[in-house]
Amino acid sequence: SKIRITWGDKTWEWDGDDEEVWKRILEWARNLGDEELWRHVKEWVDK
Rank of each mutant, 00 (worst) to 15 (best):
R4N: 07
G16A: 15
E43P: 01
I5K: 00
W28T: 01
W22I: 06
K42D: 04
W7R: 03
V41G: 00
E36A: 07
V21K: 02
E27K: 05
W22N: 03
E27V: 08
E36V: 05
N31P: 02
K2E: 02
G8P: 01
W7S: 02
V21Y: 02
E20F: 14
K47F: 06
D9K: 02
V45R: 09
K47H: 14
D34Q: 03
L26Y: 05
W44H: 06
E35V: 04
L37F: 15
T11Q: 09
K10M: 13
T6G: 03
R24E: 05
R4F: 13
E13P: 00
R24S: 10
W12F: 13
A29S: 04
V21P: 03
K23E: 09
K10V: 10
I3Q: 02
H40M: 14
E43Y: 09
D17A: 14
D15Y: 09
E43F: 07
L37N: 01
I25Y: 00
T11V: 13
I5T: 01
W38Y: 15
I5Q: 00
W44R: 04
D17L: 09
K23A: 12
E35W: 06
I5V: 11
R4S: 13
D17I: 10
W14H: 01
W28S: 00
L37T: 02
E20R: 10
W22H: 06
N31I: 09
K10Q: 12
E43M: 07
I25V: 14
W28F: 06
N31Y: 11
E43V: 05
K23R: 12
E27N: 09
K47T: 11
G16P: 11
R4K: 14
D9Y: 02
L37P: 00
R24F: 09
R39V: 08
D46Q: 10
T6C: 08
N31L: 14
D15S: 11
V41Y: 02
E19D: 12
R4G: 05
E13G: 02
E36Y: 05
E36H: 11
T11W: 10
D46S: 11
E35G: 04
I5G: 00
L37I: 07
E43T: 07
R4Q: 12
G8D: 09
W14A: 02
R4L: 13
L32S: 15
D18K: 07
K23W: 08
E13T: 08
V41S: 00
S1K: 15
W28D: 01
W38E: 08
K2D: 03
W38H: 08
H40R: 12
K47Y: 05
D34V: 07
D18E: 13
I3H: 03
G8E: 09
S1T: 15
H40P: 02
K47S: 10
K2R: 11
E36W: 08
T11C: 12
R4D: 02
K10C: 08
W12A: 04
W7M: 05
D34G: 06
R24Y: 10
K23D: 13
E19N: 15
D34I: 10
D18H: 12
D17C: 15
R39P: 02
I3T: 04
N31A: 15
I5S: 00
K42N: 10
K2H: 09
D15C: 06
K42M: 12
K23T: 12
R39G: 07
G33D: 12
L26W: 07
E43G: 06
